[in-house]
């Protein structure tokens, strides 16, 4: 019952519209819009409370209490923060490129939303099930680089521009090990469809067969989301807040929330590719598949926060050297070893 609750809700809506005499094509379009708006709501609500989670985790690691006063256990703190930011004036500095400056904080939510559309939340629970899911996620994810960069450029501020340049350098160089790391998983599962990849992990999760790829993906993922220890993009001791320096009020809040939306995407892809997606470990099927998916996803998110509040920020040249001289060769070696192993195991007859 609980396993297929979302599928049943979708069916109820579909039959309700069909009963009203809506044509089938229109019904499917309406249903898709409902699904996508549900995903958008999911992303925004999550981003809001992940900020709270981040503050609580940070407080715990630094032996503090964190927010406690607004709402029960401080749960409404971030909601209140966002309300305050909505009420603030959006300052448009002199000499900015007005249209790009205002457009970019809005567009920054497009890549995460497009990515979430193909991620399988549970058994048969994918909004858009396409054959090239992995490739689609990588392609759409690469679009956010130019949005960050354009925001930095449009601000007409040297710190913003340097931050934008760093975004391009960092995201382009860490996209390579990210893609090459995922390639090992694709080689073993023999499919680019995210559902097929999850099903291929029925016997053993890919984190055990591809541990190096998992580590590479995790490191590159932290870098792609611009989080510490790779948050040079907004290294406040050097360049104030990077591309967001000139943004105030809701413009800044959108970038801030987008960081958490991107982190969710990276964690969800990590769950699907390495942690068995919605598959239940040890045959614990009585817990619905989508609950397992979210448990694994939030564990990865917690891991990200743990890393952020444990390690200091890297230096720019170290970051680039690490990406190109360690991660890229390592991921290439991983692909080579994976290919050789697949060939050998096939020869043995596994």
């Amino acid at each position: 019952m609980l396993e297929s609750i979302f599928i049943e809700i979708a069916d109820i809506i579909r039959y309700w519209f069909l009963d009203l005499g809506t044509p089938e094509l229109l019904t499917e379009i309406i249903l898709m819009l409902i699904k996508l708006s549900a995903i958008l709501g999911f992303i925004i609500v999550n981003a809001l409370w992940l900020v709270y989670m981040e503050r609580k985790v940070a407080a715990y690691i630094q032996s503090r209490i964190g927010p406690i006063h607004t709402g029960p256990k401080g749960l409404l703190q971030t909601a209140a923060d966002i309300l305050k930011l909505m009420g603030k004036e959006i300052i448009l500095p002199d000499g900015i490129n007005r249209i790009i400056f205002i457009l970019m904080p809005i567009l920054i939510f497009v890549p995460p939303l497009m990515t979430w559309a193909v991620i399988p939340f549970g058994r048969d629970m994918t909004a858009v099930d396409i054959d090239m899911g992995v490739f689609y996620i990588l392609a759409v994810g690469s679009l956010s680089t130019i949005i960050f960069w354009a925001a930095g450029w449009a601000s007409n501020n040297k710190y913003s521009l340097i931050g934008g340049m760093r975004v391009v350098a960092q995201m382009v160089s860490y996209e390579l090990p990210l893609v090459l790391g995922l390639l090992g998983v694709v080689m073993i599962s023999g499919s680019l469809n995210l559902n097929q990849i999850v099903i291929a992990q029925d016997n053993v999760w890919f984190i055990f067969t591809q541990p190096i790829a998992f580590l590479i993906y995790l490191i590159a993922g932290i870098s792609e989301t611009n989080r510490a220890p790779f948050d040079l993009v907004e290294g406040e001791s050097e360049i104030i807040a990077g591309p967001y320096t000139e943004y105030s009020g809701m413009g800044f809040a959108l970038f801030f929330l987008a960081e958490y939306a991107n982190m969710m995407v990276v964690s969800a892809v990590c769950t699907v590719m390495f942690l068995g997606g919605w598959l239940a470990p040890f045959g614990m099927d009585f817990i619905p598949s989508w609950v397992w998916f979210f448990l694994k996803m939030y564990f990865i998110i917690f891991l990200f926060m743990w890393i952020r509040w444990t390690y200091p920020r890297m230096r720019v040249d170290h970051l680039m050297a690490f990406g190109w001289k360690v991660l890229v060769p390592l991921s290439l070696a991983n692909i080579f070893v994976t290919g050789a192993c697949i060939y050998i195991f096939r020869g043995i007859g596994w």
């Binding site: 396409i130 054959d131 090239m132 490739f135 689609y136 990588l138 392609a139 759409v140 690469s142 679009l143 680089t145 130019i146 960069w149 450029w153 521009l161 340049m165 391009v168 350098a169 995201m171 382009v172 996209e175």
Partner: peptide, 23 residues
Amino acid sequence: DFLALIQVMVYAGAICIMVVLGI
């Protein structure tokens, strides 16, 4: 579909570098 995704991935990535060089 494959060509479409290549189009998005390669060109969006390449364009960023082009812009940086341009500036």
